[in-house]
Nucleic acid binder design. Sequence first.
DNA 1: GATCATATGTACGCAGGCGCACAGACACTT
DNA 2: AAGTGTCTGTGCGCCTGCGTACATATGATC
Lengths: 241, 241
Amino acid sequence: MPGDHQEDPLENKLLAALPDADLARWLPQLEPVDLPLGKVLYESGRRLSHVYFPTTAIVSLLSVMEDGASAEISVVGHEGIVGVSLFMGGDSTPSRAVVQSAGRGFSLKAHLLLLEFNRAGSVMHLLLRYTQALITQMAQTVACNRHHSVDQQLCRWLLLSLDRLASDELVMTQELIANMLGVRREGVTEAAGQLHKAGLIDYRRGHITVLDRPGLERRSCECYGVVKKEYDRLLPASKAT
Amino acid sequence: MPGDHQEDPLENKLLAALPDADLARWLPQLEPVDLPLGKVLYESGRRLSHVYFPTTAIVSLLSVMEDGASAEISVVGHEGIVGVSLFMGGDSTPSRAVVQSAGRGFSLKAHLLLLEFNRAGSVMHLLLRYTQALITQMAQTVACNRHHSVDQQLCRWLLLSLDRLASDELVMTQELIANMLGVRREGVTEAAGQLHKAGLIDYRRGHITVLDRPGLERRSCECYGVVKKEYDRLLPASKAT
DNA sequence: GATCATATGTACGCAGGCGCACAGACACTT
DNA sequence: AAGTGTCTGTGCGCCTGCGTACATATGATC
């Protein structure tokens, strides 16, 4: 869909939080990109050529094992940036970034981001604070994977995804969700069935609609709340100073 | 034990990797500290007053749930620093840092570290690279928790701990290990029994001795290797430039 | 509207890990 | 040398999630 309706970089909250002076410099360099379902933005061990600022898409960071088994480390949506390892100094990461929910975003050439980062001003601090939030998400996921049921994790996952979307509908198969959570597809079917029975969600073939968000939050493990709170704390919805 | 033998900050590899000019400035500010087993270096949500550079101690970063259940996110030994969230901009983290193996280290006042970090030179890049390695460890732990057996995880954990110690003996109860891995104490007993039967380790009441390191590596899941490789890549044993 | 790939539902046995309970064994105290 | 607290070993039954297999439903395509 060329000439799509929304092509505003400010839909990405990280970009929106940039001081005006910085933003003005960035805008000409940002390229709108289409992020179709399943697109791999970066692969384990490969050098990063671009970073991405999703606007309507959601991207998952996955840890992938030799045998193909995977688990989601964290999710990135319109609140963040894909490719933090670039400015952390790694050039690459041993994880994979995959578009989990189709949409759009903006890309920026790696060397340009590095230039901006190395100015060591508010841009840098903003990116580091975002990374800190990402770390929190990972840390919580470690414990969640260990201690909570598929049911609870599904709630957490739905809520985290929802926060990163405008709508209350996810275009997403259960198979995909299973890959993210690192569980069986059947396990997701079962858990989703429970949530449906409880009147919290509705779904059909590749679409999940959340009916009762507060209900989901109540059913979810504490992990969702912990992560959300930390994102809100570290990345308030206002300009960086 | 006052006037202990080794009080050399350079035993910490991160400090050792500092350019001489930076190191010279730091040395007078570093205070040797005793890190006894179980000491909490920072608590969830609390402001960090110091950062720590372990030399002979090992520190675990834990995710702690409301009900007290926990899981280790990552380990820090003589290769690193405890308190990365300070310079990442968070002031605090929702995790806890506990001394997992008694020993010593050096502390540095938070504001001094921030001053150094904000010079935005090689110190900053070194710390960020270290943080990137830490992130890798977390990411791998997410997947490991999900897909690997207690047996394999114990191997990984032993190896990671060993890399952060001089000796091949860990002073550590199975109960403690269970807390780190987020499993039952009995599960660790069982797994340790297996490893003993296989001639890989020896142990008695609070002490574990590794007999066959290569054997452990073979028995461990791939996660150990992935993490190790990334630490080596990001933090080579030489001065930063 | 028939066809077909793909998404979802269900069932069954199995294994790993949990919670609990208690027995033995070790090291430190006095 | 005895006493004591803690650490380790072991044995249940239970439940969750896994692997496998197959049945059914749905929505896109022709």
